[in-house]
Amino acid sequence: MVGVCRERSVGKLDGFKGHITVIPGATNDREVIKKAVEGCDGVLTVLVPWGVHQYSSGTVQAVLDYARPGARLIFSCGWHITRDGQDVYSRTFILGVKAIGWIARMLRAVDIDDQVEACRRIFSSNTRWTVVRGSDLEEGESQGLPVWSRHVGDPVLASNITRRVDFALFMVAALENDELIHEAPAIVGCRTPSALAIKTGS
């Protein structure tokens, strides 16, 4: 196993020495990604919208260019990404995303639009991709594999919360789930009220 980590954070992974090879560097550094994905059957990528220098789209392009043909590529981002325009967002959600995006760009801290561009590149590629779209996240022990829907606005997603560890669990499970190839599942915790309501039919 190989992981890419910011140089200043490499020490946090000392507990995994011997189990994972850590390559220090930025994920939008093409040479770093080329080295990291060489020979890999699966690649997990978090689309981070840091800065205003195309961090997400740069990361995606490097993965698309250097991952071996046929590799399973799993990407993650938020609900604000839409694949087919059929997602239904509340007015509060839309205003919140716009406000955060505008403030973040003014501060040159985050570029949400670059995540949109990154996903556009993924959706138009002929690779074996999945884009996992996460709800709000919370800490805590695993509740199990999240449930998902093709579109935000589905009642099962109404609780809008997932344990952080379960988000990661879903991404790992997607590596072996061919039903998720060319899907952009929006996920929510399996024990949230909205998920349980759908399961019980109430």
Rank of each mutant, 00 (worst) to 15 (best):
N177W: 03
V147L: 01
N177A: 07
M171P: 04
V147D: 00
A173W: 11
E176Y: 07
E176W: 14
R164W: 12
E141S: 08
R163H: 08
L145M: 05
I181E: 02
H182R: 10
L180K: 00
N177C: 10
G140N: 01
H151T: 12
S142E: 05
M171I: 13
V172L: 15
E179Y: 02
V156G: 02
Q143K: 12
P155Y: 11
L145S: 01
R163A: 11
S159P: 09
A174E: 06
T162G: 07
A174H: 04
I161V: 14
E176K: 13
R164L: 15
L175M: 15
L157F: 04
A158I: 12
S142V: 05
L157H: 03
P146I: 06
S159Q: 08
A174W: 02
S159T: 07
D178L: 08
M171S: 07
S142N: 09
Q143S: 13
H182A: 05
V165M: 09
E176T: 14
G140V: 06
A168G: 10
L169R: 14
T162S: 07
W148I: 04
L180N: 01
W148K: 08
R163I: 07
E176P: 09
I161Q: 10
H151N: 13
E179W: 06
M171G: 14
D154P: 02
F167M: 15
M171F: 07
L175Q: 10
N160Y: 11
N160C: 13
F170Y: 11
S149G: 12
P146G: 08
L180H: 01
E179D: 05
L157I: 05
S159L: 08
N160P: 09
L169V: 15
N177R: 10
L169M: 13
D154A: 10
